[in-house]
Write a protein that binds this DNA or RNA. Structure first.
Length: 222
DNA sequence: GCCAACGTTGGC
DNA sequence: GCCAACGTTGGC
């Protein structure tokens, strides 16, 4: 389950969230004083009421995609960090698992995510991206010709959602799954990637995030 | 390409 | 609403 390079498609079919969970609080840009734009009736954002999360309220995630071409129902499926780099921004479509979907619906614009390469010679974390658009209906589920068409998803009551992600960077060095597993009983013992291998969209704790970034900076010469 | 782990489906 | 059968994920 992963994003695939989708064949064209009307990207802005539906732009609004349909689940009504809109949250007014923008990711807090640290100390920058928020100037109300033209209107004094603009909502005042006072306090960071999510103090438990560092990095100013942003969260970290991990999303899996398959970088190698594979044929699924007659369609080529493939999406790598290089593809994302080329596209700059892309919808992350094709997630067909409820827990993964739920995680995508929790993503906030500006959150950071690891791009994980799965089902390939060397599975592992290849790069960093950020959430460019929060969850909205996955229109590929409505498209009878799409790989991940789901007849049970109705435009008026969408079953599947996606976010848009934006390329940030490749890691200096890809961090392979084998290496991550070396810490499965220590620093990364609670990591979803380790404990819930099949979940394609998972949360990453700030500590795990930093730990993996550190790994990627070490033994860098390849 | 095998297969373990785990998610989903459907009969009862 | 249990649970066996079935399907899928994804590392190896």
């Amino acid at each position: 389950m992963a994003r695939t390079r989708s064949s064209g498609g009307s990207e802005k079919l539906i732009d609004d969230k349909l689940d009504g969970t809109k949250r007014a609080v923008a990711p807090l840009r640290a100390k920058v004083t928020k100037k109300a734009r033209t209107s004094k009736s603009a909502v005042k954002i006072e306090s960071n009421d999510t103090p438990e999360v560092p990095n100013h309220g942003a969260s970290y995630w991990l999303l899996k995609a398959e970088p190698d071409t594979r044929i699924v129902k007659g369609h080529e499926v493939k999406f790598s960090i290089d593809d994302l780099k080329e596209m700059k921004v892309s919808p992350w479509d094709g997630v067909r698992n409820h827990e993964a979907k739920k995680n995508m619906q929790l993503m906030k614009k500006g959150d950071l995510a690891f791009f994980y390469h799965s089902n390939c010679k060397v599975p592992g974390i290849a790069g960093v991206m950020k959430v460019a658009k929060e969850a909205y209906p996955d229109y590929t589920a409505f498209d009878t010709n799409a790989v991940y068409y789901d007849p049970k998803s109705d435009k008026n009551n969408p079953k599947w959602f996606m976010v848009d992600v934006e390329y940030v960077r490749h890691l200096k060095r890809m961090v392979p799954l084998t290496e991550i597993k070396e810490y499965a009983e220590s620093e990364l013992k609670d990591m979803a990637l380790v404990r819930r291998g099949r979940l394609s969209v998972a949360k990453v704790s700030p500590k795990e995030w930093d730990f993996i970034l550190n790994l990627s900076e070490q033994k860098g010469e390849e």
